[in-house]
Design a binder for these strands. Structure first.
Lengths: 235, 235
DNA sequence: ATATTACCGTAGCCAAGGCTACAAAATAGT
DNA sequence: ACTATTTTGTAGCCTTGGCTACGGTAATAT
């Protein structure tokens, strides 16, 4: 199957190929046995439980990773857009099985790469392979860090604690008391694992108390000390 | 600082050196600039916030990784014993800072390795380096998978759901309707992020309904179908 | 401009579960 | 055997927060 036009250009923005020139990518690519695929919204790109021998790179559009829990509920693990990878954590954790289902959230294109080609040295250009593997290590470690911070939010009891922790982290990341968040209320509530109306209620309370201010996705910290001192009643 | 005796022997059991012979380890080790350290219970092996340029391998004893959240509470991330690594996720995620504090949970020994030596090709024995990096990739990916399964428990609303998910997973892992868990009530409650008395109450209810039976850390699933069909009321 | 849809705040009801306190049972130590 | 300590079950109170329902506002399409 022929590669879509501009593939190498797009991959230059993919963290997996960070530090590799476009020319390098072009020469490296055939060696990775890439398999492109166009998809329409709703198509299944990876079915939980079925054998997995590739990882995916989103070239265009968005894909959603869903975890099906033991009772058949669907939990959204993540939404991945252009340049992002999916399936690589499970791949290198050594099962040959998709643990989650990957569904197209829009029309788009994805590039599948056999993950064993990536991690094994190959014919020529082996210095690039080295780079690829180190990049992959960084990507997987980064995802683990993300999950870890997610875990630390979920471990907090109490709505106010979760909100305070989340907002405080954003404050530290942006080094600014006013910042935008890239989620709407529904998504934020889902991220913190609380219900949207309850979260809105608590946000309102915190606004009334002068701790924060907000409008839509713009938040401002009004009383940093009060925010930092929020902790659960239990000791 | 001289390496402790038997270091290579012990490292042979470490997943980082999987697939490398003991002789290989011995010849490889000097190249990694290992730095051994003995510790006593309570010593700090890595302080959150301070610069990090090494990863640790536990040779003997146990170390505890603690996360300090924004308000100063301590959350236990994990307890690592002989052969296990710590600090590697943060290291390869690219910050040069310990995100968590590592405390010795007993007397023991640890081997520190500069993580950049690991990920870069070196003088001789470069085929071993390849292997090391791929092993490291597998280890980090495995930790990410573990965190993911932990996340899936915490995401569940409802005590009964969490218990059902946990017990059902144990049933699948052991392929037996009767199994022991390696935690006491307190630890299990902490793992599922609920309070112990509330959990005991719910366990009692499930026993009354004939879904499960238990005594101390021994659990028996009496009604598998009922267990599987437990899901949250919300749709 | 108007209709349609997504997004967000608010109110009220009520159940799930957190918390303290206590008792019984098991385990460990002497 | 006896005591001390840990572990687990139980009871009752009461707060937190889930849920439905609704209204208003912003964004988007027609």
């Amino acid at each position: 199957m022929p590669l879509p036009a501009m593939t190498a250009e797009r991959l230059a923005d993919c963290p997996l190929f960070a530090g590799i020139s476009q020319a390098g990518i072009t020469s490296l690519l055939p060696c990775l046995e890439p398999n492109p695929r166009s998809f329409r919204k709703g198509e299944i790109l990876g079915q939980a439980g079925s054998p997995q021998d590739v990882i995916g790179i989103v070239l265009d559009g968005q894909v959603q990773v869903q975890q099906e829990n033991f009772a058949g509920e669907r939990l959204i693990v993540g939404l991945f857009g252009s340049g992002e990878l999916f399936g690589e954590v499970a791949a290198y954790a050594g099962r040959g099985i998709w643990p989650n289902t990957v569904v197209a959230a829009s029309d788009g294109q994805v590039l599948f790469l056999p993950y064993e080609r990536l991690s094994q040295s190959c014919c020529q250009a082996c210095d690039y392979h080295q780079k690829l593997i180190r990049n992959m290590l960084g990507i997987v470690a980064g995802k683990a860090m993300l999950m870890n911070s997610r875990l630390s939010y979920l471990k907090l009891r109490g709505m106010r604690e979760k909100l305070a922790a989340f907002l405080y982290d954003r404050y530290r990341q942006t080094s600014s008391k006013t910042f935008l968040i890239n989620m709407n209320r529904e998504a934020l509530a889902d991220y913190l694992n609380v219900s949207r109306p309850s979260m809105s209620r608590e946000l309102g309370r915190m606004k009334d108390e002068g701790i924060i201010d907000f409008y839509r996705s713009s938040f401002t910290i009004r009383n940093l000390e009060a925010l930092r001192s929020i902790r659960n009643s239990r000791h």
